[in-house]
């Protein structure tokens, strides 16, 4: 955490407009998700007497087809989306950065092979592979959250690998690495002491933007009925179940979508802002 503040010149974050708005949106969504049990009611509790009730002071977002409180389902949906998105992002980051660093650091044939693999993954439209893969999983094994995670990580690690590889390649040529090597530093020392801290900035920017993207991907899969299955509340899937009622109960569609848009927008803003700061810092240097 300390490192992050240092990289982005912590003080600048609240000064940057994009960052400020983005960060507040992201924090808002995270808080909603984490305090869901305090804010919301039981998202599973059905009440057929309240079926398709419109928004009111008791049910802020109205009620769904089984009379469940939509507000609670949307809030718990934030939880689902965030947990899954962050898990995917973490796995991808771990795998991607490792592969990228190895490729860039060792070079030679390893780099050639990994470079090719990265090329391959970059040239297949991600969402196509995601749908195909989740589809294959879920039409064969049945859908589970792990299928979604696995399928998205499968395509998602590449951007991390590419960016890490690029950074490592450029750092390798810098003097301080040469010096370290000259005085006999071990590979692992160079990696942890020099390369990782330097790569951290761009990777954090990427990760922020990435979480937004993943939330969108999960929602898309959910909307297609391929993602996380009911009764677990998930935004895309809530939207999917509401689209039949667009004429009679548009709120079932409206609110989950609004939250998807809001959170993706938040992460994108924050990512952009962080990138701005990083770029400006580079210019200073």
């Amino acid at each position: 955490m300390f490192k992050v503040i240092e990289i982005f010149r912590g003080i600048e974050i609240p000064k940057n407009n994009l960052c400020r708005i983005g960060l507040s949106v992201v924090l808002f969504i995270i808080l909603l998700g984490s305090f869901a049990p305090l804010i919301a009611k039981d998202p599973y509790e059905t009440n057929m007497a309240k079926r398709l009730e419109s928004p009111s002071s008791e049910h802020f977002f109205g009620a769904d087809q089984l009379g469940r409180d939509l507000f609670s389902r949307v809030i718990y949906g934030a939880r689902t989306s965030l947990i899954v998105a962050i898990t995917i992002s973490a796995f991808s980051m771990g795998i991607g950065c490792l592969i990228g660093a190895v490729s860039g650091y060792f070079g030679g044939i390893i780099d050639d092979v990994i470079g090719r693999i990265i090329d391959v993954f970059l040239s297949i439209p991600e969402i196509v592979v995601n749908i195909a893969l989740v589809g294959v999983f879920c039409t064969i094994y049945g859908s589970s959250t792990w299928n979604v995670i696995l399928a998205v990580v499968f395509t998602n690690w590449v951007s991390y690998a590419r960016i890490t590889r690029g950074i490592v390649l450029s750092l390798k040529e810098r003097e301080f690495i040469f010096c370290s090597k000259a005085i006999g530093a071990k590979s692992s020392w160079i990696l942890f002491k020099h390369i990782i801290p330097n790569a951290l900035g761009p990777i954090i920017v990427l990760a922020t933007l990435n979480v937004g993207n993943i939330i969108l991907t999960i929602a898309s899969l959910g909307f297609l009925g391929l993602g996380i299955q009911p009764p677990t509340p998930e935004w895309g899937q809530l939207l999917n179940s509401g689209k039949n009622y667009i004429a009679t109960a548009p709120w079932i569609t409206f609110f989950p979508g609004l939250f998807i848009a809001l959170s993706v927008f938040g992460f994108n803003l924050l990512g952009e802002g962080l990138r701005d700061i990083l770029e400006r810092r580079r210019i200073y240097e």
Partner: peptide
């Protein structure tokens, strides 16, 4: 299925609902 799940939950049965593709 979701409603049945809730009704059975109310009498103390712990139901895991699996919404599956036709083939699965």
């Amino acid at each position: 299925a979701q409603l049945v799940q809730q009704q059975l939950k109310n009498v103390g049965l712990n139901i895991k609902l699996e919404t599956l593709e036709k083939g699965v």
